[in-house]
Design a protein around this nucleic acid. Structure first.
Lengths: 338, 338
DNA sequence: GCCATAAGATATAACGATATAGTGCGAAGT
DNA sequence: ACTTCGCACTATATCGTTATATCTTATGGC
């Protein structure tokens, strides 16, 4: 019933180690032999047993996805991207939601890696940006790829996929400036996320690029949540000079700002334009539909996983890749009123 | 470095088989011996190696979560519920998103079970309601628990956790009737989902219970999507006599209806009350916040997983459990206008 | 032509659990 | 008193791979 490596070896007339060499792309096998083995594998529909590989070998063929993020859309996209890369490369995925601020988070993660002998980890913010956690993982020599906000790949990053949030923020802010807005506010996300810092920097950069002054009253501290968006927008609307546009640090905050505007009877976009960041599905389900910045999360996760697995195969080490988020113009932004 | 069963056996002064018996709660071990072994396990911080268990034993200690559902909130909730049960019981989770209408879906799932020797499957709609898929799984004698819409546990269901969507729909429709609404419309979800049928039946039941007539023009076919909600609500708003309230088959459809109402300049809830179903996070992020029906998805998934694993342990077979979704009153419903 | 070396393959020991067969010993049956 | 039985436990085979050590055969250098 079950086809094992022994069956393949017998069928191909070679030893099991040779079959193992072929399935693992190891050197020292003649092409003729490789072909013999491969056709035996195909003929018998052989699939290596993961548990046995795991037990005998040093690689587990299992990668872990570690996250601490309440954004379901983001997580699902990431999972799907990782999963598609895993499927292509014969790996399996272990998902591990966690609390990055838990006291024992380092032990939790290192135990996870050790107990499951994980081949690698995909880390998302804020875990991917926490030096204490990274140090703990380095100590046990764990493989990981970080998904982080940043502008260019460099060796200090380790293996990383960068999302250039700054450039995305510059583009979307420029979009507002191009519409004639001069009083543009910023609703920030959690400060533990580097993305918040980068998006804020991009917002400021765009203002500066256009000789617009930076008004500190227009930069509101907050968190990556709907409620924070509601509160932040309320605060903005109370000010003597109201902004004519708001850059929200993500779509949820933007949705909260939309909500607050409605509470105060402010029409969006006629009176105030609002933009989000992320292009999550619900940015298409608000009224009006949100202008936002698109991040190809599934692709980001796919590439990250490929990098991670490639590293283990000792291929020419590619250190990372940078993604440029692009604006998506919908209905929550318009020309500033004369 | 790594603690194995041999270390535990040596430390406790027994054979490895005895340790195995203790860790698996098998009979024929004296209490004194059990205590000795357990204290050795604790002293050495022993954790059984999953790969070895998997390879040697008949159980894999891995359960699969199979889903075909674009609703990220739902999936994340389910994953978390399954994961928490798995953690308690020493199991691992393999997630498997798929396309339930793919031609080779049966082979895909049976191969998945066979190749990973999955201990069991958690199936969600529409997969959990597809007789062809269930038959294929029965054929290979796979263990599974179904999460389905229904009213009572019975042996025909196999292992199942039921969500009494009908009662939820009755309650929420009754809420509208209690507010004085007599012209209540229904926006349906996909007809492949039993939940659609059940929710429609509950809606009708509530009308009947209150001697209100069922108007077929007020029952609009659709799908579980925002766009479908937009279209359905548009159709309703065009009718000669507009409904004063709408029951949407889920929150996404309700959000779509909200959007369509705004497009047409119809005030919610002043002119029309709208209710959703599911209580997903974004039902709190719409304007106005949605009145909806709460489903404890995480708990449902947790219980389902416990049932699944308990079955494999040959405990007194409990067949299932029924959940009653309850209305959550927010701001999208109000007294009908005099 | 002979030895050193590498390439290509094999035989077999691990990996860390569970499963199977078997042992010793006290209690019960005749 | 002698077998029989069942409980509590041990010794060891086993699962399906990878890893290690070893063997054989070609290849090149002198």
């Amino acid at each position: 019933m079950k086809v094992t490596i022994n069956d393949v070896a017998k069928h191909a007339g070679v030893s099991i180690k040779t079959v193992s060499r072929v399935t693992n792309n190891e050197p020292s096998v003649k092409q003729v032999t490789i072909d013999k083995v491969n056709s035996a594998i195909k003929a018998l529909n052989y699939q290596p047993n993961l548990a046995a590989r795991n037990l005998a070998g040093t690689k587990s063929y299992v990668i872990g996805f570690i996250y601490d993020n309440p954004n379901a859309y983001y997580i699902i996209d990431m999972q799907n991207g990782i999963l598609s890369a895993c499927k292509d490369l014969g790996y399996e995925l272990l998902i591990h939601p966690c609390n990055s601020t838990a006291a024992n988070i380092c032990k939790e993660l290192t135990d996870l890696v050790k107990h499951n002998r994980l081949s690698g980890l995909v880390l998302t913010p804020p875990l991917s940006e926490d030096p204490v956690i990274l140090a703990a993982l380095d100590e046990i020599d764990a493989n990981y790829v970080r998904i982080i906000a940043g502008e260019k790949v460099d060796t200090n990053n380790g293996l990383a996929v960068l999302v250039n949030d700054r450039s995305g923020a510059i583009s979307i802010t420029q979009h507002l400036i191009d519409l004639g807005h001069k009083h543009i506010a910023f609703l920030s996300g959690d400060h533990e996320h580097a993305s918040t810092k980068e998006r804020l920097a991009g917002y400021k950069q765009a203002l500066t690029n256009n000789q617009l002054s930076i008004n500190d009253d227009f930069i509101i501290d907050g968190k990556y949540s709907f409620e924070s968006g509601v509160q932040g927008a309320k605060d903005l609307l109370k000010q003597r000079t109201r902004p004519t546009a708001i850059v929200a640090c993500n779509d949820e905050i933007a949705a909260g700002a939309l909500f607050a505007a409605r509470l105060e009877g402010v029409d969006i976009p006629a009176e105030i334009s609002i933009v989000g960041f992320e292009d999550s599905p619900f940015s298409r389900q608000t009224w009006p539909k949100l202008t936002t910045v698109h991040q190809p999360n599934e692709e980001i996760a796919h590439i990250a996983t490929e990098l991670l697995i490639a590293k283990r195969k000792d291929k020419p080490a590619q250190l990372g890749k940078v993604f440029l988020p692009e604006p998506v113009i919908r209905d929550s932004t318009t020309q500033v009123r004369g």
